[in-house]
Amino acid sequence: MTLHVAVLMGGWSAEREVSLLSGAGVADALEQLGHRVTRIDMTREVAARLAEAAPDLVFNALHGTPGEDGSVQGMLDLMGLRYTHSGLATSVIAIDKVLTKQALVPHGVPMPGGRVVKSAELFGADPIARPYVVKPVNEGSSVGIAIVTDDSNYGNPIGRDVAGPWQDFEELLAEPYIRGRELTTAVLGGPPGNRALGVTELKPKTGWYDYDAKYTDGMTEHVCPADIPDVIADACKALALEAHRLLGCRGCSRADFRWDDERGVDGLFLLEVNTQPGMTALSLVPEQARHIGMTYAELVQAIVDEALQDGERA
């Protein structure tokens, strides 16, 4: 079936450039599949652009706010437009790391502890024992993350004038730092049901897996499938599927983990669930799809097919 698909990309979040790359890849794939495509770089006039285009479906290729936090989803719901990926309620919860913990931890999904602190508190004392991580409550793609250790350059306590996320965000989530390895698992929805595509280990060439390491070619080695024990791979897949289900994710999602390999399964922790995972040449979901024999275009079509089936959104 040939469709008219509006690909929504860009916007004004910290992840704008990545979203433009995701959107361009998706749009090209849709055209290769024979669909008619309208590319929309989101501005404040996005509702008017969409009303004018009147597409059969909106492919949401936005990353970060407002495309991933429920704002765009609510607008599309009000306009009566079908769209890919998760709906309003799921998006509101999944982008908020505290709400995600509240939704998943009571059901047995292991996540780090921690607490939300006012950034100004960091200048007086550490909120929890070092080493710890501070991150914005509502950002993705490792935007605004700092790892605070005894020998970090932030000071003790953290210096008020030292560059870090405390200068950009009034509140931050402080979590214990988990040593070990970075793992990620993509989940793809649709018939015959949700499926975990695989497990990838991410090995940054320098430092840790921050925004630059994610989106700069050559800065991170992707080991797909990850060279890990089967019990850990199975646990990643099971937890990613459970998180996808509990949060009510649609389309595809990506669950990010830290694994302390000295502790076995007890050392595996879910960090977050991304409801709008990247679709760039370096992105993890297309990479895992390739590993199971699915082309990029087939992945895009699968996401479109589920959105067409899913008339009611969470």
Score class of each variant (00 low, 15 high):
Glu201Gly: 12
Val46Ile: 13
Gly190Met: 07
Asp234Asn: 10
Gly159His: 12
Glu287Arg: 13
Asp161Glu: 14
His4Lys: 15
Ser71Arg: 12
Phe169Ala: 14
Val143Ser: 01
Arg44Val: 15
Lys135Asp: 10
Ile95Tyr: 04
Pro136Arg: 11
Glu298Arg: 14
Gly23Glu: 01
Ser19Pro: 12
Ala14Asn: 10
His244Cys: 11
Leu20Gly: 08
Phe169Tyr: 15
Tyr211Ala: 07
Gly218Lys: 02
Gly144Glu: 07
Arg181Glu: 06
Asp266Pro: 02
Met219Ser: 09
Ala29Glu: 02
Met75Cys: 15
Lys135Phe: 12
Gly311Gln: 09
Leu271Gly: 09
Val137Thr: 08
Ser71Trp: 02
His63Ser: 11
Thr100Arg: 00
Gly25Asn: 05
Val46Asp: 04
Leu284Val: 04
Leu76Pro: 02
Gly80Arg: 06
Met219Leu: 13
Val98Ser: 10
His222Ile: 08
Thr295Trp: 06
Glu312Arg: 14
Lys205Asp: 09
Thr206Ala: 15
Gly251Leu: 01
Pro106Phe: 05
Cys224Pro: 00
Ala213His: 10
Thr184Val: 10
Met9Ser: 12
Phe59Arg: 02
Pro192Tyr: 05
Val231Thr: 12
Lys205Met: 02
Val46Gly: 09
Gly34Asp: 04
Leu270Val: 07
His107Ile: 08
Leu197Asn: 00
Gly114Pro: 04
Thr206Gln: 15
Leu99Asp: 00
Asp210Glu: 11
Gly34Phe: 07
Ala125Asn: 13
Ala51Phe: 00
Gly190Leu: 07
Glu31His: 04
Glu221His: 08
Pro286Asp: 03
Lys237Gln: 14
Ala233Val: 00
Ile93His: 00
Leu284Asn: 01
Arg313Gly: 08
Glu312Phe: 12
Val105Asn: 04
Leu183Met: 08
Asn194Tyr: 07
Ala235Lys: 01
Glu139Asp: 12
Asp41Phe: 04
Ala89Trp: 08
Gly70Pro: 04
Asp151Lys: 14
Pro112Val: 11
Met79Gln: 13
Ala302Val: 06
Cys249Glu: 01
Val148Leu: 11
Tyr132Leu: 03
Gly264Asp: 03
Gly207Leu: 05
Arg195Phe: 03
Arg39Leu: 06
Arg49Val: 05
Gly25Leu: 00
Glu306Thr: 07
Asp212Lys: 14
Leu282Ile: 03
Leu197Ser: 06
Asn274Ile: 07
Gln167Asp: 10
Ser141Met: 10
Asp217Trp: 01
Asp126His: 15
Pro112Ser: 13
Ala6Met: 10
Leu8Ala: 10
Ala47Glu: 13
Ile158Phe: 02
Val7Arg: 03
